[in-house]
Amino acid sequence: MEDRIAQLGTDARARIAAAADLEALRCIERDLLGKQGPLAEILASIPSLDKAERPAVGRLANVLKCELLAVAAERREVLEAELLAAERSCEDFDPTLPARPARRGSLHPITRVRRRVEDVFTSMGYRILEGPQVELDYYNFQALNIPADHPAREMQDTFYCTGSGNLVMRTHTSPVQVRTMESVEPPYRVISLGRVFRKEEQDATHDHTFHQVEGLVVGEDVTAGHLIGTLRSLLAHLFGRELDTRLRPGYFPFVEPGFELDVRCPFCEGGCRVCGRTSWIEFCGLGMVHPRVFAASGVDSERYTGFAFGFGLDRLTMMLLGIDDVRHFMAGDLRFLEQF
């Protein structure tokens, strides 16, 4: 019996050592150590053995069982390591094969930049208001201190609607200033973004439909210094660094004093195509709210002061994204849109 156990041990060790993979090892373990296996058979036969023989056989069989379990575990570790090593090998990996694209749609570039502008201003406590694009002559012109026959009306070639003659396609977002002042009590900070229309010939830098951002702040201690500070904050957010600005006189009938703000070209030092080699870019028309506009909207211009500004979203988008033709924006061409 002891010989048989020894023989069994020799065979079993050899089989385990020869197991080619984990599945084979599992089969061998089942064969040797399972309920129907030879060790089980030996253990089951112990009661039928001589009393003297029983302890030794029992011990030998149990020792062998323990040993085989250990050997099998060892072999399993080796096989698992081999398997991992095989998996880690990269023989069948071709790093030059392309990615499978994750397809998605796109947001319009104007939307992308519009959101950035909105977010800067809302973070500074501004509300976003909307005004109609088909606007009353009163709001687009008269209430903004641009009466009929004012030369400033010609600065903005206007689309007029048929009918009673009091509707125009708004030429700027400034009417929202008046609508705001009429409906909200100061103090307030608002911006308005949206489409505006001017009857212009279309070329790489002009379209008859474009987008403006209008800002209006009214309060008891609002100065031109705050106006400059506000726009510098915006520019720093948009361009990722502080940019130099300069203020110069500008004429807009609804502000007094009126200014234009130039920003130091962020793309060059000393002149490039974007700034027309002047190293300054005209960015924004702005000023302190005109007392006549306050009067038209019922705001006490002795108690409150305010500033307003307006700039083009299309040109800003073109600058930020390096787009060279404004006509792409409204053309709806997927070859353009897919890039954003």
């Binding site: 500074m124 406590g125 103090p187 900070r189 702040v217 309060g219 609002v222 100065t223 031109a224 210094g225 705050h226 400059i228 500070g229 506000t230 510098r232 904050s233 300069r246 203020l247 110069r248 006189p249 007094e256 004093p257 009126g258 200014f259 302190m288 005109h290 007392p291």
Partner: peptide, 25 residues
């Protein structure tokens, strides 16, 4: 208007002299 004179003063004094400020409220 008074505001028109403010503009005259500002542009002759020089707008670059206006200190840049941030709104507080």
């Amino acid at each position: 208007l008074e505001e028109d004179l403010v503009e005259e003063v500002g542009r002759i004094v020089g707008y670059e002299r206006i200190p840049v400020r941030r709104l507080t409220a």
